[in-house]
Amino acid sequence: MLAEKYPQEVKKILAKYPPEQKRSAVMPLLYLAQRESGYVTKEALKDIAAMLEITSTEVVSIIGFYTLFHDEKAGKYRMQVCTDLPCALRGADKFLEELCGNLGVKVGGTTADGMVTVEAVMCLAACDKAPMFQLQSADGIEYHENMTVDRTMELVEALRKSKA
C-alpha cells in the first residue's frame, strides 16, 4: 500500500490539490508507484484508484495515455534516445544505431542482463545538445547530453557495476 509505504510523500502530493479534486493526484501517485519496480503493478493500480475514489479502469487509462508510465516490466534503466528532427539533424539516428550495436540490442530491446532498455523517443527539449538521451529509472529521470557512444558505454558499465 502506497499510503503505508510512503506516508509523507502521499500526504504531500494530496496536499497540492483542493480536497475535492483528489483525482489530480493520479499522475504524481503513479510516479510514486513506479519507484518500486519501474512500472505500476496491479496492486498499486487498485490502491491508487481506491485512494482517489476513481475506478481502476480510469487509472489504467491514464497509464495508457502517457509514455512515461509503464504497466510492464522492462530493463532497470530505460535509455530513451531522442531521435526527433533537431537531434537527428545532429546525428542522433547514427548514435542510436551504433549504441544498439554495441549493446547488442534492437531499438526497444533490453540488454541480456536486464539492465538497460533502449528506446527512441520524441524531442526532449535538449536539441542543442544532441546526441542526448534520458535515463528513466525507479529513482526518476536524468538527462545525458552531448553524448558519444563511448561515453554512453562507460555509463552503462558504471550502472552495471553500481548494481554489484
Partner: peptide, 20 residues
Amino acid sequence: GEPVLAFYNRGRATDIITNS
C-alpha cells in the same frame, strides 16, 4: 455514473478497455 470503460493508448492506437 459507473466509469468502467475508458480509452487506453492514444492516437490511432486508442482502444476501449475495462479493468473492472
